[in-house]
Design a protein around this nucleic acid. Structure first.
Length: 375
DNA sequence: GTATGGGCGTTTTAGACGTG
DNA sequence: CACGTCTAAAACGCCCATAC
């Protein structure tokens, strides 16, 4: 992990030019690159291979001396991994366009990232993208594009508006505490101002799950709890179907609460999942809960869900066994209470995205290029 | 006493994919 | 096409044991 590339250069002017980088990386073309299909793994392997190639070129800029440089963003957020050449690496596989996703920095901004020995600054807009396309069938490197943010923006448009995602962590200790309750349900009563008028018992609903809620058809959270206790605990949510576990749960819960659920309804998404009940459902076997755009940490009225804010929307978090998928416990409460037991991730992460047509990569097949003329 | 590194819980983020 | 969501593994970071 103490790779040579993780130490920045002594001064900005010592960075290797993009043209030179492309030339050095051309040895990578046609070499084999095994894809595991695990995104985190493939991306990390690629970064290591590129670091290796650059290191073996024997022409890295001299490293900054210990203590003569510092990283400016707190917790190194958004700073590219390969500091010596100030590059970030990306892998292109299939699809008709490639979604270039940049975490925690706006690649077009001159935000300072590293202060060097001579006082010069490496900035977000100085990061070079090294985009490598892999031939999926033959598992070899097809092409390497080295590009600057400026090049990407001028050829493909600006990076879109940052997507913010909020996260919550269910610490393993707390998870165990919930699972040890009898029944294993962490429960809090409703908070919504109109909750006293909510319905006590489950009965058939004629509305669709994404319809706007109404006072008369919203169930008391106790009714949801009783359903979970009777019908969800012990039930299995197939853990292989990683992509749609959430939908499976949504289906089980919505039909249990009296809805006639059409397949299409499940695909709609949105917040909260079962809007007609102001109910967000989550399947969790791992600690990190993705809250998406809305976090109950911040009270905020929900336009699509009149009468409810992010804090009184109800959450149903099914705690499932990682290997079997069996539901072993649950959290059922208005969002406000999540923070009393679980930890919000302090700083929200964001990413900037820019899609690039695959035709661009086709054009440079078999080559390693820097900011190439296009079209 | 300081350096090194294993173990492991916590946090960050790679990139696929879904949706309007 | 642009943007948002999703999952889960890598990376981080802290603690502690052991080596030097």
């Amino acid at each position: 992990m103490t790779g040579a590339l993780s130490i920045p250069p002594s001064r900005k002017s010592a960075l290797t030019s993009g043209r030179q980088l492309a030339r050095r990386l051309s040895v990578f073309l046609g070499s084999s690159f095994h894809l595991t299909g695990k995104q985190r793994t493939d991306g990390s392997h690629l970064r290591k291979r590129i670091a290796e190639v650059l290191e073996q070129s024997g022409a890295l800029p001299a490293p900054a001396a210990d203590g003569s440089w510092r990283i400016l963003p707190p917790k190194k957020k958004g700073v590219p991994r390969l500091l010596r050449e100030f590059i970030d690496t990306y892998i292109v596989t299939t699809g008709s366009s490639y979604n270039l996703q940049v975490w925690n920095r706006n690649p077009s901004e001159p935000t300072p990232h590293v202060e060097l020995t001579d006082g010069s600054l490496l900035r977000a807009c100085d990061v070079r993208f090294v985009i490598t396309r892999i031939d999926v069938a033959r598992e070899i490197v097809r092409s390497v594009i080295v590009a600057t943010p400026e090049y990407i923006v001028s050829h493909f448009g600006k990076f879109g508006k940052p997507t913010i995602k909020e996260q919550l962590i269910i610490l393993p200790r707390v998870r165990q505490e919930v699972l040890a309750l009898d029944p294993p349900i962490l429960f809090y009563a409703d908070l919504a101002p109109l909750a006293r008028q909510f319905r006590r018992r489950i009965s058939d609903q004629s509305a669709r799950i994404h319809d706007v809620p109404s006072v008369a058809t919203t169930l008391r959270i106790e009714a949801i709890r009783d359903f979970v206790k009777a019908h969800l605990l012990g039930r299995r949510i197939n853990p292989d179907a990683t992509k749609n576990r959430g939908q499976q749960l949504e289906q089980i819960v919505a039909s249990g609460l009296g809805y006639d659920v059409k397949i299409g309804d499940l695909l709609i998404g949105g917040f909260p999942d079962i809007r007609h009940q102001a109910l967000e459902v989550k399947v969790q076997d791992a600690p990190t809960v993705d809250l998406g755009r809305y976090s109950p940490q911040f009270a905020e009225p929900l336009d699509g869900c009149p009468g409810f804010s992010t804090q009184d929307v109800r959450y149903l978090i099914a705690l499932t066994d990682p290997s079997t998928g069996v539901c072993r416990g649950a959290v059922i409460c208005p969002g406000k209470y999540l923070g009393q037991h679980f930890v919000y991730v302090a700083n929200e992460s964001f990413k900037c995205q820019r899609s690039i047509p695959m035709a661009f990569f086709d054009r440079f097949d078999g080559r390693a290029v820097f900011n190439p003329p296009y079209p």
